[in-house]
């Protein structure tokens, strides 16, 4: 539900970084989205279509989303296992309940590509 807001944050962070690195037009953004965040990739893509109208992006700019599975690590026996489809955080080996989430909460911009500002400083 809050994907528009997340996209607005992404655009602000990109604008700031683009200024810093003298990037004029962004062509591609890569986002990492864990399955255990409440951000839905489809909704993020839809929101991106709205925001990419801004000058910061080239008209053909793409948002690439890499999803990360939720991975649990059992604090009792050390087993690492995927937590799928909202399954409970129960260790498949020892039925332990002290599970650390090692992946699945990610929500960050990994990188972006763009055209560098043309400089005339000879």
């Amino acid at each position: 539900m809050h994907e528009m807001g997340l996209m607005a944050e992404m655009v602000d962070l990109l604008a700031e970084s683009a200024r810093e690195h003298q990037v004029r037009r962004i062509d591609k953004v890569k986002l990492i989205v864990g399955k255990m965040t409440n951000a839905l990739p489809d909704a993020l893509l839809m929101a991106f279509d709205v925001y990419k109208e801004q000058e910061l992006f080239s008209p053909s700019a793409v948002l690439e989303i890499e999803e990360k599975e939720t991975i649990g690590h059992c604090a009792e026996c050390g087993t690492t296992f995927p937590v799928r489809d909202n399954a409970l955080f129960i260790c498949p080996s020892c039925q332990g309940l002290r599970i650390d989430i090692t992946s699945g909460r990610e929500l960050y911009i990994e990188n972006y590509e763009g055209e560098e500002e043309t400089r005339y400083d000879n």
Partner: peptide, 16 residues
Amino acid sequence: MTIKVDLGTPLLARNE
């Protein structure tokens, strides 16, 4: 020229 910038910035960085 095309350049690639590695960020690693969380989307909710400002909220944090």
